[in-house]
Amino acid sequence: MSVVDAGVFGVHLLFAGLWSGSVLFTTYAVLPLAMNGDAQPGPLAALTGKLRTVSRASALLLLLTGGHLAATRYTAESLTGSPRGHLVLTMVALWFVLAGLVEVAGSKLEDGFEEQKVREPAREARPFLLGASLVAVLLLLDAGAILGLFG
């Protein structure tokens, strides 16, 4: 593996972990505070904004680094005709789903926080954050399968 490939792989893993961890932390720690009304809209809005920033930056960087890794490791035939290629394509689909779920949840939260509401937007965003958390875990399992089973 070249130095460039190692750097790209490192950035890819870093942002995959950051994105997944941010979603899981928000669902586990931030959402319950909002649902219980134990936090103010201002700090919650700031946290939600950071989550969306991490999500957008990660989606872009994972697309770029993943594209580089796929282009240097796979052919069209190996992506569509092998178990490892199928896992890579599944990962790309899950990235899009994760980005969409975080955007919807973040939008629901920010809209409510702007109106100085806390509990209602948290309840509305909950299914999307739970779904995003599930997708984040599936992404990590998919990555583990790519690296562990077929690496």
Rank of each mutant, 00 (worst) to 15 (best):
M1Q: 02
S2T: 13
S2K: 00
V3S: 10
V4T: 14
V4C: 01
D5V: 00
D5M: 14
D5F: 07
G7C: 08
V8T: 07
F9N: 07
F9H: 06
V11K: 00
H12Q: 04
L13Y: 10
L13D: 09
L14D: 00
A16M: 14
L18G: 02
W19M: 03
S20G: 15
G21V: 06
S22P: 00
V23M: 07
T26N: 11
T27M: 10
A29I: 00
A29Y: 11
L31E: 07
P32T: 03
L33T: 10
L33N: 10
A34E: 14
A34Q: 12
N36P: 00
G37W: 08
D38Y: 11
Q40W: 00
P41H: 04
P41S: 04
G42M: 10
A46L: 12
L47E: 11
K50M: 15
K50H: 11
L51E: 05
R52Q: 15
V54D: 05
R56I: 14
R56N: 13
A57L: 15
A59D: 10
L60C: 09
L61W: 00
L63Q: 01
L63I: 13
T65Q: 02
G66A: 05
G66T: 11
G67Q: 09
A70N: 05
R73H: 14
A76H: 08
A76E: 09
E77R: 13
T80I: 04
T80H: 12
S82T: 15
P83C: 05
R84P: 02
V88I: 15
T90I: 13
M91G: 14
M91A: 10
W95P: 03
E103L: 13
A105L: 03
A105F: 02
A105T: 04
G106H: 12
S107D: 12
L109E: 11
L109V: 07
E110L: 14
G112A: 03
E115R: 15
E115N: 06
E115Y: 02
K117H: 07
R119P: 02
P121W: 05
P121S: 05
A122L: 07
R123D: 11
R123K: 14
A125R: 08
A125D: 06
R126E: 15
P127N: 08
P127K: 07
F128A: 13
L129I: 09
G131W: 08
A132N: 11
L134Q: 03
L134A: 15
L134V: 14
L134S: 08
A136R: 12
L138G: 03
L139S: 08
L140F: 12
L141F: 12
D142F: 04
D142Y: 05
A143L: 15
A143W: 09
A143R: 13
A145S: 15
A145V: 00
I146R: 05
I146M: 09
L149F: 04
G151D: 02
